[in-house]
Amino acid sequence: MDILVTNNPLVLDRCKSCVHIEYLDAPLIDVLVRVRDLVHLGHALRTHPLSGSIKPNETLYKSVLVSGKHSHIDKQSVHIAGACVLKAQSFPLRVFNERVLYDMQIVDLSLISSALSSCAHER
């Protein structure tokens, strides 16, 4: 079963009925690290962790879909997930005010929704 790792409360609210969610009340980088760790445990990436052109320090929210656990490690997923953590760590942290948080949630929801739509076609 796929797992949607997210720290976006809007994604939790909108997607919880259609996909299994692991919700983290944590910064964006923790989502990427959790995804990397899952990939090392045998889950494969279903979506790219750096979805969108919005830089990792320009949004607080991230949602990444991984597959259920396989018996083997997916090398491509390990490569991508690791590179994404390193890339995200290279951006300096920024502070945002409350007014833009919902907008950030909306964009992250849209990005992951486009992937869930592709995913639905695949099945």
């Binding site: 990436l45 279903r46 979506t47 790219h48 969108g52 990005l111 992951i112 486009s114 992937a115 592709s118």
Partner: peptide
């Protein structure tokens, strides 16, 4: 340039 890896 889709988000979904299978699309890529």
């Amino acid at each position: 340039e889709n988000v979904y890896l299978a699309d890529k």
